[in-house]
C-alpha cells in the first residue's frame, strides 16, 4: 500500500469513529445508544462506499461489494435450508430429525411425492461426483421441461388469446360514442378524455400498433416494400412506447435515490428534520 492509501484509510477511520461517538451521544435517550450509533454509522459508510463507484472503482467499493455479495449469498443459503428443508420437508419425513431441528413433527402427513424433490435434489448434487455428473442432467431436464410446458399454456392464453380478443375494438365508436356522421364528429371535436375523438383515436392506436408491431416481429419475410413500411411504423410505435416507459421508470429510480439521500441527511447527519 502507498503512503497516500494509509492516509486515506486513517482519515476515513477517524471520521467513522467520530460519527459513531457523535451519533451515540445524540441517541443517548434511546436504549443501547452505542450499538444504534454504530449501526447507523455502518449503514452510512456502506451507502457512501457504494456511491463512491460513481467516481471510479476503489477499495471502499470493493469492500462493500464483497460484504454485500457474501452476506446475501449466505443469507439465501440459510433461508433455503431453514424454510425449505427444515420447514417443509423434515417435519413430514422424519420424527428424529424434527426433534433435532426442534420443529413440530407432522405424523400422518407423509406422502411419497415429498421424496421426488429430495431425489431430484440429490441427483443435482451428483455433478460434484467425478463419475456421476451425467445424473445431474435428469433433474435439469425435468425442471426445464415441466415449466416450459406449463408456461406454454400460460403464455398462449395471456399473450395470444387475450391479446387477440383485446384487439376487437370498435373503430367507429361504441354505444357511448356512436358514429353519427362526419358533420357531427367535427362539430363535437374535443380533446377531453371522454370525447368521441379521443375514444376513436385510442382504438385506432391499438389497431395500428398491434398490426404494425406484428409485422415488425415477422421473421419469415424480408422487410421491403409495403411490408417494410408496416415494419417501420411498428418500430416507431415500439420506440415511442419505450420512451414513455423509460421516463416512467426513471422517476421511480429517482425516488430510490431520494430514499438514500434522506437516510444520509436526516438519519445520519441530522441536517433535515
Amino acid at each position: 500500500m502507498k503512503r497516500s492509501s494509509y492516509i486515506v484509510l486513517g482519515v476515513v477511520s477517524a471520521i467513522f469513529v467520530l460519527s459513531w461517538v457523535m451519533k451515540s451521544m445524540s441517541l443517548s435517550e434511546v436504549d443501547d445508544s452505542i450499538m444504534q450509533g454504530f449501526l447507523l454509522t455502518v449503514s452510512a459508510f456502506l451507502t457512501l462506499s457504494i456511491f463512491s463507484f460513481l467516481y471510479k472503482d476503489n477499495p471502499f467499493y470493493k469492500f462493500a461489494e464483497h460484504l454485500f455479495v457474501g452476506v446475501s449469498a449466505a443469507f439465501w443459503m440459510c433461508q433455503g435450508f431453514w424454510s425449505t428443508l427444515v420447514g417443509n420437508l423434515i417435519p413430514r419425513v422424519s420424527e428424529s430429525l424434527s426433534g433435532f431441528f426442534m420443529v413440530p413433527y407432522q405424523p400422518g402427513s407423509f406422502n411419497f411425492h415429498y421424496w421426488i424433490p429430495v431425489i431430484l435434489g440429490l441427483l443435482l448434487l451428483m455433478r460434484l461426483a467425478p463419475k456421476g455428473g451425467w445424473l445431474s442432467r435428469w433433474p435439469l431436464a425435468f425442471i426445464v421441461g415441466t415449466t416450459a410446458g406449463l408456461n406454454f399454456i400460460k403464455y398462449l392464453r395471456s399473450d395470444f388469446i387475450d391479446q387477440v380478443s383485446s384487439t376487437f375494438v370498435p373503430l367507429l365508436g361504441d354505444e357511448t360514442n356512436k358514429w353519427t356522421g362526419v358533420g357531427d364528429f367535427f362539430s363535437n371535436l374535443s380533446l377531453s378524455a371522454d370525447s368521441q375523438f379521443v375514444a376513436l383515436l385510442a382504438n385506432w392506436v391499438i389497431f395500428v400498433g398491434v398490426f404494425s408491431g406484428l409485422v415488425y416481429f415477422f421473421f419469415s419475410k424480408e422487410h421491403k416494400g409495403v411490408f417494410g413500411v408496416g415494419s417501420r411504423v411498428g418500430i416507431w410505435i415500439l420506440m415511442i412506447t419505450f420512451g414513455a416507459s423509460f421516463g416512467y421508470t426513471v422517476m421511480g429510480r429517482i425516488s430510490l435515490l431520494v430514499g438514500r439521500l434522506t437516510f444520509l441527511f436526516r438519519d445520519w447527519l441530522g441536517l433535515i428534520s
Binding site: F160, I161, D162, Q163, V164, S165, T167, F168, V169, P170, L171, L172, F207, V210, F211, L214, F217, F218, F219, S220
Partner: peptide, 30 residues
C-alpha cells in the same frame, strides 16, 4: 410462431368487423 402471428392478424381483422357489427358469436370464441 410467424404463422401464428399471421393468424392473429387475420383473426383480429375478422374480430374487428364482428365487433363493429355485433357478431358476438365470433368474439365469444376467444
Amino acid at each position: 410462431q410467424d404463422y401464428a402471428k399471421a393468424a392473429i392478424i387475420i383473426l383480429a381483422i375478422i374480430g374487428l368487423i364482428a365487433g363493429n357489427l355485433d357478431w358476438t358469436g365470433f368474439t365469444g370464441l376467444f
